[in-house]
Design a protein around this nucleic acid. Structure first.
Lengths: 234, 234
DNA sequence: GCTATGCTGTGGTCCGACCACACGATCAGG
DNA sequence: CCTGATCGTGTGGTCGGACCACAGCATAGC
């Protein structure tokens, strides 16, 4: 067992046992090193891994925000894993897109199924994003960033934090890919108009509590864009 | 920008540009440190992160297997992220189970849809696993390990490496949870018989090319177990 | 020709030091 | 008494250097 793994196991056990909670802080690196009988560099390697896993956030200085604070940020590690493995070319982008369609259509169906419920505030967030996307003079970059935010917000309506986190990371990883394909579109302005209309229709279907309609609209929405941009669709 | 991030960006760029390939090796830690003008501890922190992300595998000694070898192992990092975030209690197990049902039912539907195709070898793997699960005297531990392998193999039939990887990590993270619930079952032996039969039926539906049937069988199979074990089901 | 022995380069670990930073206590001035 | 600047202290960030264990390979000896 490598020394830095001692720290990882210790932290995971402390988390599971409730000795460490979100918002709490890890002991200082020097303290941790002494407690476990290892050196500070070994502790630091472990803290780096925890940071990459989205479990701690480190900052210098003093005060409540300084040190290694326990957080729960699953999106960034998932994004990093996705990006790195896409870079190795052992993870086809088409699989990522296919996964996106699956998760988003499911989320829309689920959200519509619980429509009478508590989504009012979150639906408002989605509406606001759509309003901002109506602004004139948005660059493709800005538009697609808002688009990504909208889709992530949609997936959050289903109430499954794991699926929402995976969706957010998928969308981050896809973003560059989408932007690179914009020049393939014969008429980006026209496409933007189409996308805006489809967005409104999706939200309307969810609000109306029509699961199957919402799911189909989402699927068609995503597929349509990828086909228009001449990207491979699964 | 922290120094170790220099290494991460460098490696990601090298991967994307094809300068680093699976099976290749990272430059030595000392070399990398000199090239980037940073210290070896900083390089080591980055290598640890890459290792945690499933992109490199380190080993001491010399020869082709030593050093930091580029690999593509997405399952272990996903499992680690899942385990850690489950430990923080900010990721409900019910969401994990719900995700599992979604991915597995989709995989079964997809696999059945492409049944006439090339799955022969992979279907055989699933069959072999089921044969091994028929052995007498299997402990719940052994049985559920084989069960997990079977479900992961099933999700691989759909041909989406991302979904297969996520499923494998979900199953790893769930395993302890499932085992802890076995004592809740009124009659584990009877449950094992039921599960075996359902497994066979699922494979049969896929082989017969019946997507909807396969998906429903999988959903019922998973839901049935969780309900019998008195675990919360979404 | 075969075996044993070192040599070499790899990661693994540690130590000690210094820096930048941010908070909070302390002290000087009003 | 209040307000302000100042310094102390503890945090992570970085560095250089050193030594170890390990595995393969070249070499010397048989």
């Amino acid at each position: 067992m490598k020394n830095y793994e001692l720290v990882l196991h210790r932290v995971e056990a402390d988390l599971a046992a409730g000795r460490l909670r979100i918002g709490g802080r890890l002991p200082g690196e020097r303290t941790l090193a002494e407690q476990l009988g290892i050196s500070r560099p070994s502790v630091r390697e472990a803290v780096r891994v925890l940071e990459a896993m989205g479990v701690v956030r480190t900052a210098t200085g003093s005060g409540p925000e300084a040190g290694a604070v326990i957080v729960a940020e699953p999106v960034s590690p998932l994004t990093a894993v996705l990006r790195l493995h896409l870079a190795t070319n052992h993870l086809p982008m088409s699989d990522v897109v296919q996964t996106r369609i699956l998760l988003e259509s499911w989320s829309a169906r689920e959200a519509a199924g619980r429509a009478p419920g508590l989504d009012a505030a979150e639906l408002k967030v989605a509406d606001d994003l759509l309003d901002r996307m109506d602004a004139d003079g948005l660059s493709p970059e800005e538009f697609h960033l808002l688009d990504a935010e909208f889709h992530v917000a949609l997936s959050g309506l289903a109430g499954n934090v794991l699926i929402a986190a995976v969706m957010a990371s998928l969308r981050s990883a896809i973003h560059g890919y989408v932007l690179a394909a914009v020049p393939n579109l014969p008429d980006w302005e026209a496409m933007a108009v189409t996308l805006r209309g489809e967005h409104r229709a999706i939200v309307a279907a969810i609000r109306a509590g029509e699961p199957e309609s919402a799911a189909e609209l989402v699927t068609a929405h995503i597929r349509g864009f990828y086909q228009a941009a001449q990207l491979q669709t699964p």
